[in-house]
Design a protein around this nucleic acid. Structure first.
Length: 461
RNA sequence: CGGGGCAUAGCGCAGUCUGGUAGCGCGUCUGGUUUGGGACCAGAAGGUCGCAGGUUCGAAUCCUGCUGCCCCGACCA
C-alpha cells in the first residue's frame, strides 16, 4: 500500500516495497486443488483453496500469508479513513476484567456469548466481545473538561463472541478482527456530528475497497441506544434479505477532501444517504417499500460489514464518565460506538467479487497487484524476461508475485486465476519471439500484447 | 439451544449393511520425456481407520460412552 509520491525517500520506499514482492518458490501459498468438505459458501471455499486461511476450531481461523496480506490492506484503508475523519488510534487488550462489566451492568446481561476466563488467582476475566466499558474507563480516568471533547478513539483488535452457531467461515466466526471506535461528546448535538463523521467515513471506507455499501436503519441490539445504521453490501450469497431504493447504487460517495468539521455539510450528506428506503428484513416495512416506484425497487441479499450506534449516556451514566460543562457543572458524556469487521470484509469482498475460476480482488485490497507467469520455466529467454520484469516492477514499488515454479502453463493460469491477482503478465516463448509479453486483466479477462517496457508502463500507472 | 449429518493417507472419497491381512483419485518424493488453460511414463513414500471401553478366535465394520466438525432453524460485527 503505497500512496507516497516519488520523493527524496524513494530509495527507502523501494527497499520497503521490494520486500512486498515475492517469488512463489519462496512464498508460503498452500493452494488446494480440491475443496475441503466443510466449506459451503463461496468465500469460505475460495479462501481455503487459495491458501488464505486455515480453520483451527469452530469459528476460529489462522490467516496464512496470502490472507494476511489482504487483511492488512483492508485494515490500512479502514485506518486511513478513520484518521481522516479525526478519530485517533490506540490499542486496548483482548482480555478484560469482569469488574468493569459489573459496573455497566452488562456482565450478567451479555450472557453466554461472552467467553469468561479465570486467572490463577481465580480472578474473573473475559475475552472482550466489545470495548465500551474499557474505553469509558480510559476516558473517565483522564478527561475532566468539556474542552477535551469531542474525542473519538478507535482500535483494531481481535474480539471473541461465543456464537451459538459459527458458520460460513470468516463471515460468522467466533474470533474476529474488529475496528471499533468510540466517540465522546458534551451533548446530543455534538454526538450527532460525531455519528455523522463515522457515517461518512464508512461510506468512503467501503467504496475504497470496491464495495457499494448501503446504510440501513437498524436495531441496536445489546450495544443499546436509539440511533443506529448497518452498512450493508449487496452480494448474492449474503446472509440477510435486504430491500432498498435503486438510487443508492449510483449515489456519489463523499470525496476525500470532505470537510469533517463542517457540521451542516456532513448532515447534508447523511440526510441524502438516509433519504431513500433501505431496510434489512428485520426492519422491513412492506407498505413503505411498496411506495418506491417498482422500477426502483431492489430486493436482494446483503452482508453487514459495519454498524454504527449512538447511545447517549448509557455507559457514561453508570460508569460516571462526566466532564465539567461551561457553567461549571458536571454532565455525563454522550457516546457512540462504530464497528467494522475487517476479517469479515475479506470474506465479504470475495462474496461480492468472484467467478467460477476464483477470486477477483479489487485492486486496493489485492494481496499483490501483478502476477508474472513464466510459461516456460527453465528456458533462458523466458527466465531472463521474467526476472527483468520482476525487478523492474518491484523497483517501481509494485507488489508482484512471480510464479517461478516449474509447472505447466495451465497449472499456472489456474492458480493465478484462483488467487485473484488483478493483473497477470504472461511471459512465454510465443510472445517473446515477437518481443512481447501478454498482460491479462483478471476482472474482465481482457488481454493485450505489449513490449515489456509498455507493460511496465501500464502496470505502474 | 432444537433437528439432521459426518469423522478412513496432506485433500476428496470408497470400504461399514453382510466382521477375516486397508483401497482409489489428486497431491508429495525420485528419474525421464514434456511446456500458451490443472501433461505423460516408470518407480517410491505415506494410515494407532477421531478417542475410550465392550462383544468376538478375529473389529474401520457390531454395541456403549465421549470428543470434534459441518448443515438447517431461532440469535448475531
Amino acid at each position: 500500500m503505497c500512496f507516497c509520491s516519488r520523493s527524496a525517500f524513494s530509495d527507502l520506499v523501494i527497499r520497503e516495497s521490494s520486500k512486498k514482492s515475492m517469488r512463489l518458490s519462496r512464498f508460503f501459498l498452500p493452494i488446494l486443488r480440491e475443496t475441503p468438505k466443510e466449506a459451503e459458501i463461496v468465500s469460505h471455499r475460495l479462501m481455503l483453496r487459495a491458501g488464505m486461511m486455515r480453520q483451527e476450531a469452530a469459528g476460529i481461523y489462522a490467516f496464512l500469508p496470502l490472507g494476511f496480506r489482504v487483511l492488512q490492506k483492508i485494515c490500512q484503508i479502514v485506518r486511513e479513513e478513520q484518521n481522516r475523519s479525526g478519530a485517533i488510534e490506540l490499542l486496548m487488550p483482548t482480555i478484560q476484567s469482569a469488574e468493569l462489566w459489573r459496573e455497566s451492568g452488562r456482565y450478567e446481561a451479555y450472557g453466554k456469548e461472552m467467553l469468561r476466563i479465570q486467572d490463577r488467582h481465580e480472578r474473573e476475566m473475559l475475552y472482550g466481545p466489545t470495548n465500551e466499558e474499557m474505553i469509558t474507563e480510559i476516558f473517565r480516568a483522564y478527561v475532566r473538561s468539556y474542552k477535551d471533547v469531542p474525542l473519538n478513539l478507535y482500535h483494531i483488535q481481535w474480539k471473541f463472541r461465543d456464537e451459538v452457531r459459527p458458520r460460513f467461515g470468516l463471515m460468522r466466526g467466533r474470533e474476529f478482527l474488529m475496528k471499533d471506535a468510540y466517540s465522546f461528546d458534551l451533548d446530543q448535538a455534538g454526538a450527532t456530528h460525531s455519528y455523522n463523521k463515522m457515517f461518512v467515513a464508512y461510506l468512503r471506507t467501503f467504496a475504497r475497497m470496491g464495495l457499494k455499501s448501503i446504510p440501513m436503519r437498524a436495531e441496536s441490539g445489546p450495544i443499546g441506544g436509539n440511533l443506529s445504521h448497518e452498512f450493508i453490501i449487496l452480494a448474492q450469497t449474503g446472509e440477510s434479505e435486504v430491500f432498498c431504493h435503486k438510487d443508492y447504487l449510483d449515489m456519489a460517495v463523499p470525496a476525500a477532501d470532505t470537510n469533517f468539521d463542517d457540521i451542516a455539510g456532513l448532515q447534508g450528506i447523511v440526510s441524502k444517504w438516509t433519504s431513500q428506503y433501505a431496510a434489512t428484513s428485520d426492519m422491513h416495512d412492506a407498505a413503505a417499500f411498496a411506495k418506491v416506484p417498482s422500477d426502483k425497487q431492489v430486493s436482494a441479499r446483503g452482508i453487514e460489514v459495519g454498524h454504527i450506534f449512538y447511545f447517549g449516556t448509557k455507559y457514561s451514566d453508570p460508569m460516571k464518565a462526566v466532564v465539567a460543562t461551561h457553567d461549571g457543572k458536571e454532565a455525563p458524556v454522550h457516546m457512540g460506538s462504530y464497528g467494522i469487521g475487517p476479517s469479515r470484509l475479506v470474506a465479504a469482498i470475495i462474496e461480492a467479487s468472484h467467478d467460477d475460476a476464483g477470486i477477483i480482488w479489487p485492486e486496493p485490497v489485492a494481496p499483490f497487484k501483478v502476477a508474472i507467469l513464466n510459461l516456460k520455466q527453465g528456458a533462458s529467454d523466458t527466465d531472463a524476461a521474467s526476472e527483468q520484469l520482476y525487478r523492474d516492477l518491484t523497483m517501481k514499488g509494485i507488489e508482484v508475485l512471480y510464479h517461478d515454479l516449474d509447472e505447466r502453463p495451465g497449472a499456472k493460469f489456474a492458480a493465478t486465476d484462483l488467487i485473484g491477482i488483478p493483473y497477470q503478465v504472461l511471459v512465454g516463448p510465443r510472445g517473446l519471439a515477437e518481443g512481447k509479453v501478454e498482460v491479462k486483466k483478471r476482472a474482465d479477462g481482457s488481454r493485450e500484447n505489449l513490449s515489456p517496457a509498455a507493460a511496465l508502463d501500464l502496470l505502474s500507472r
